Amino acid sequence: MSGNGNAAATAEENSPKMRVIRVGTRKSQLARIQTDSVVATLKASYPGLQFEIIAMSTTGDKILDTALSKIGEKSLFTKELEHALEKNEVDLVVHSLKDLPTVLPPGFTIGAICKRENPHDAVVFHPKFVGKTLETLPEKSVVGTSSLRRAAQLQRKFPHLEFRSIRGNLNTRLRKLDEQQEFSAIILATAGLQRMGWHNRVGQILHPEECMYAVGQGALGVEVRAKDQDILDLVGVLHDPETLLRCIAERAFLRHLEGGCSVPVAVHTAMKDGQLYLTGGVWSLDGSDSIQETMQATIHVPAQHEDGPEDDPQLVGITARNIPRGPQLAAQNLGISLANLLLSKGAKNILDVARQLNDAH
């Protein structure tokens, strides 16, 4: 009898209710805020589980004197976190989706994509230029951005401005803007500013005609071990179906173009009346040469937790077992079709030249 009692006690200790789920994140304040929001949602869904947040620095956090596009290494903000995932030191990792490459290392998958916040870019102005827009900034004003995508589009749109690289986390960039006289304004992701509670610093939100956004911008991705079915089931509740389908289309477009950090590629997606609209573009580094096109596809946005595919093969690095396969494939095909259209119009040449120029500098 006593033996059975011990077995029952052991089973209770090993039951999922007692389990601590370890969540990996970057150390920056924004990353911690984003991770806290994901953990809060998981806690609400699984009140019996405990969650421990483990923060670590990544290569991208450490190399702050070089433009991201020049470092010449993929997975700048993800490699150390993936290493911890691989060694079973954490069970899942919360990322900004735009930091996750469209091809993940073997053994990993994006197990959830959370509801997207505003994906557009924002302009934050130096205190002396508050009330201005990019259009009304004085001639030769210097605007800071760490992104080739932003610089290429904005140089084309605002030729009277000069664009220079600015690195560091959000706090560091804002301090550089406010305390030094080098920059009249800087460009940042609206979602990051909003998550930090800095709505009052948003001086201008850039519309798609001015600057399309990065693939996955404004959404959070939760990376897990691809074979860890328990954790895949656990994080599945975080999937937002519309965000998922938009981001599958965007990531398929980028992957098929073979774009990345070192080339200016941008997108804009919208879901309306059962249609998914995808606009994508590529630019030369100075913005003088560009190709942009829009395509659409009829896609039914499923309700969360309709029964999805059981075999769960990944699409552009994403596993969404609780979302039907048909809409996911339709979104992926839309991204591939748009990429093929741009490639047929000469996108590869623009991107190759951009890559060579970026590598040469």
Score class of each variant (00 low, 15 high):
Gly24Ala: 09
Arg26Gln: 01
Gln29Trp: 11
Gln29Phe: 07
Gln29Leu: 11
Gln29Tyr: 08
Gln29Asp: 12
Gln29His: 10
Leu30His: 01
Leu30Ser: 01
Leu30Ile: 01
Ala31Tyr: 01
Ala31Cys: 01
Ala31Arg: 01
Ala31Gly: 08
Arg32Ile: 14
Gln34Ser: 10
Gln34Met: 08
Thr35Ile: 01
Thr35Gly: 10
Thr35Gln: 01
Thr35Leu: 06
Asp36Asn: 10
Ser37His: 12
Ser37Ile: 12
Ser37Val: 08
Val38Met: 07
Val38His: 03
Val38Leu: 08
Val39Ile: 06
Ala40Glu: 10
Ala40Tyr: 14
Thr41Tyr: 10
Ala44Phe: 12
Ala44Glu: 12
Ala44Asn: 13
Tyr46Trp: 13
Tyr46Val: 14
Tyr46Met: 13
Pro47Trp: 05
Pro47Leu: 06
Gly48Met: 06
Gly48Lys: 14
Gly48Asp: 13
Gly48Glu: 13
Gly48Cys: 11
Leu49Thr: 13
Leu49Asp: 08
Gln50Met: 15
Gln50Val: 01
Glu52His: 05
Ile53Ala: 06
Ile54Ala: 07
Ile54Phe: 12
Ala55Ser: 12
Met56Ser: 14
Met56Tyr: 01
Met56His: 12
Ser57His: 04
Thr59Arg: 08
Thr59Gln: 13
Gly60Ala: 04
Asp61Ala: 01
Lys62Pro: 01
Lys62Gly: 15
Ile63Thr: 01
Ile63Lys: 04
Ile63Ser: 10
Leu64Met: 08
Asp65Ser: 10
Asp65Ile: 08
Thr66Asp: 05
Ala67Phe: 01
Leu68Gln: 06
Ser69Thr: 09
Ile71Gly: 09
Ile71Lys: 12
Glu73Phe: 06
Leu76Gln: 10
Leu76Val: 13
Phe77His: 01
Lys79Ile: 09
Lys79Ser: 14
Lys79Asn: 13
Lys79Trp: 11
Glu80Pro: 08
Glu80Arg: 09
Glu80Thr: 11
Leu81Glu: 03
Leu81Trp: 09
Leu81His: 11
Leu81Lys: 01
Ala84Ser: 09
Leu85Phe: 04
Glu86Asp: 12
Glu86Ser: 11
Asn88Leu: 12
Glu89Val: 11
Glu89Ala: 10
Val90Ser: 07
Asp91Lys: 12
Asp91Gly: 05
Val94Lys: 03
Ser96Val: 01
Ser96Arg: 03
Ser96Met: 05
Ser96Asn: 01
Asp99His: 07
Leu100Arg: 01
Val103Phe: 09
Val103Trp: 15
Leu104Glu: 05
Pro105Ala: 11
Pro105His: 11
Pro106Ala: 12
Pro106Trp: 11
Gly107His: 08
Gly107Gln: 14
Ile110Gly: 01
Ala112Phe: 01
Cys114Glu: 01
Asn118Met: 11
His120Asp: 10
Asp121Gly: 04
Asp121Gln: 01
Ala122Thr: 10
Val123Glu: 01
Val123Gln: 03
Val123Ala: 11
Val124Ser: 06
Phe125Met: 11
Phe125Ala: 05
Phe125Gln: 15
Pro127Lys: 10
Pro127His: 05
Pro127Val: 07
Lys128Met: 15
Lys128His: 11
Lys132Trp: 12
Thr133Asp: 13
Thr133His: 07
Glu135Tyr: 09
Thr136Gly: 10
Leu137Thr: 04
Leu137Cys: 06
Pro138Val: 09
Lys140Met: 10
Ser141Asp: 07
Val143Asn: 03
Gly144Cys: 08
Ser146His: 06
Ser147Asp: 06
Ser147Gly: 01
Ser147Trp: 07
Leu148Tyr: 01
Leu148Ile: 13
Leu148Val: 11
Arg149Lys: 03
Ala151Arg: 11
Ala151Tyr: 09
Ala152His: 14
Leu154Thr: 08
Gln155Met: 11
Gln155Leu: 10
Arg156His: 13
Lys157Glu: 06
Lys157Gln: 12
Phe158Cys: 12
Phe158Trp: 13
Pro159Asp: 07
His160Leu: 10
Glu162Ser: 06
Phe163Pro: 11
Phe163Trp: 13
Arg164Trp: 11
Arg164Ile: 09
Arg164Gln: 09
Gly168Ser: 01
Asn171Val: 07
Asn171Pro: 07
Thr172Gly: 09
Arg173Lys: 04
Leu174Thr: 07
Leu174Glu: 04
Leu177Gln: 05
Glu179Lys: 08
Glu179Pro: 06
Glu179Asp: 07
Gln180Ser: 11
Gln181Pro: 06
Gln181Met: 10
Gln181Lys: 12
Phe183Val: 14
Ser184Gly: 09
Ala185Thr: 14
Ile186Thr: 14
Ile186Gln: 12
Ile187Met: 08
Leu188Val: 01
Leu188Asp: 01
Ala189Glu: 03
Thr190Val: 11
Ala191Gly: 06
Ala191Ser: 08
Leu193Lys: 01
Gln194His: 05
Arg195Leu: 11
Arg195Cys: 05
Arg195Ile: 15
Met196Gly: 09
Met196Ser: 05
Gly197Ser: 12
Gly197Arg: 10
Trp198Tyr: 11
Asn200Ser: 09
Asn200Tyr: 08
Asn200Cys: 12
Arg201Pro: 04
Val202Glu: 10
Gln204Ile: 01
Ile205Arg: 07
Leu206Met: 14
Leu206Lys: 01
His207Asn: 05
His207Val: 10
Pro208Tyr: 14
Pro208Met: 12
Glu209Pro: 15
Glu209Arg: 09
Glu210Val: 11
Cys211Arg: 01
Cys211Leu: 10
Met212Ser: 09
Tyr213Asn: 10
Tyr213Ala: 01
Ala214Trp: 01
Ala214Pro: 08
Val215Tyr: 01
Gly216Arg: 01
Gln217Ser: 09
Gln217Asp: 01
Leu220Val: 11
Gly221Ser: 07
Glu223Ala: 03
Val224Asp: 01
Val224Leu: 15
Arg225Met: 12
Lys227Pro: 01
Lys227Arg: 08
Asp228Ala: 12
Asp228His: 01
Gln229Pro: 07
Gln229Tyr: 14
Ile231Thr: 07
Ile231Asp: 12
Leu232Met: 11
Asp233Ala: 07
Asp233Gln: 09
Val235Asp: 01
Val235Phe: 01
Gly236Leu: 05
Val237Trp: 01
Leu238Gln: 07
Asp240Tyr: 13
Pro241Cys: 14
Pro241Asp: 07
Pro241Arg: 01
Thr243Ser: 11
Thr243Glu: 05
Thr243Val: 01
Leu245Ala: 14
Arg246Asp: 01
Arg246Phe: 05
Ile248Leu: 11
Ile248Cys: 01
Ala249Arg: 01
Arg251Val: 08
Arg251Asp: 01
Ala252Asp: 01
Arg255Lys: 06
His256Ser: 12
His256Ala: 15
Glu258Trp: 03
Gly259Leu: 12
Gly259Gln: 01
Cys261Gly: 04
Cys261Asp: 05
Ser262Ile: 12
Ser262Trp: 01
Val263Ser: 08
Pro264Met: 01
Val265Pro: 05
Ala266Ile: 04
Ala266Asp: 09
Ala266Gly: 04
Val267Thr: 15
His268Arg: 15
Ala270Arg: 13
Met271Lys: 10
Lys272Gln: 09
Asp273Gly: 01
Gly274Glu: 15
Leu278Ala: 05
Thr279Leu: 06
Thr279Trp: 05
Gly280Pro: 01
Val282Lys: 04
Val282Asn: 04
Trp283Pro: 09
Trp283Cys: 07
Leu285Cys: 06
Ser288Lys: 07
Asp289Glu: 09
Asp289Gln: 15
Asp289Ala: 13
Ile291His: 10
Glu293Asn: 08
Glu293Asp: 14
Glu293Ser: 12
Thr294Lys: 03
Met295Leu: 14
Met295Asp: 08
Gln296Lys: 12
Gln296Gly: 12
Ala297Arg: 01
Thr298Arg: 13
Ile299Gly: 01
Ile299Glu: 11
His300Met: 01
Pro302Phe: 04
Ala303Phe: 15
Gln304Val: 01
Gln304Ala: 15
His305Thr: 01
Glu306Ile: 11
Asp307Gln: 04
Asp307Phe: 15
Asp307Trp: 15
Gly308Gln: 15
Glu310Ile: 01
Asp311Ile: 04
Asp312Lys: 01
Pro313Ala: 14
Pro313Leu: 12
Pro313His: 06
Val316Lys: 01
Gly317Glu: 01
Gly317Ala: 01
Gly317Met: 15
Gly317Trp: 12
Thr319Pro: 05
Ala320Phe: 03
Arg321Ile: 10
Arg321Leu: 11
Asn322Asp: 15
Asn322Trp: 14
Pro324Lys: 06
Pro324Ile: 04
Arg325Gly: 13
Gly326Glu: 13
Pro327Arg: 01
Pro327Leu: 05
Leu329Arg: 15
Leu329Ser: 13
Ala330Ile: 01
Ala330Met: 01
Ala331Met: 04
Ala331Leu: 01
Gln332Ser: 15
Leu334Ser: 07
Gly335Trp: 03
Ile336Arg: 15
Ser337Leu: 15
Leu338Lys: 06
Leu338Tyr: 01
Ala339Gly: 15
Leu341Asp: 15
Leu342Asp: 01
Ser344His: 15
Ser344Ile: 14
Lys345Cys: 05
Lys345Pro: 01
Gly346Gln: 01
Gly346Arg: 11
Ala347Arg: 15
Lys348Ser: 14
Lys348Asp: 12
Lys348Phe: 11
Asn349Gly: 11
Ile350Glu: 01
Asp352Pro: 14
Val353Thr: 15
Ala354Pro: 14
Gln356Pro: 15
Asp359Glu: 11
Ala360Gln: 01
Ala360Arg: 06
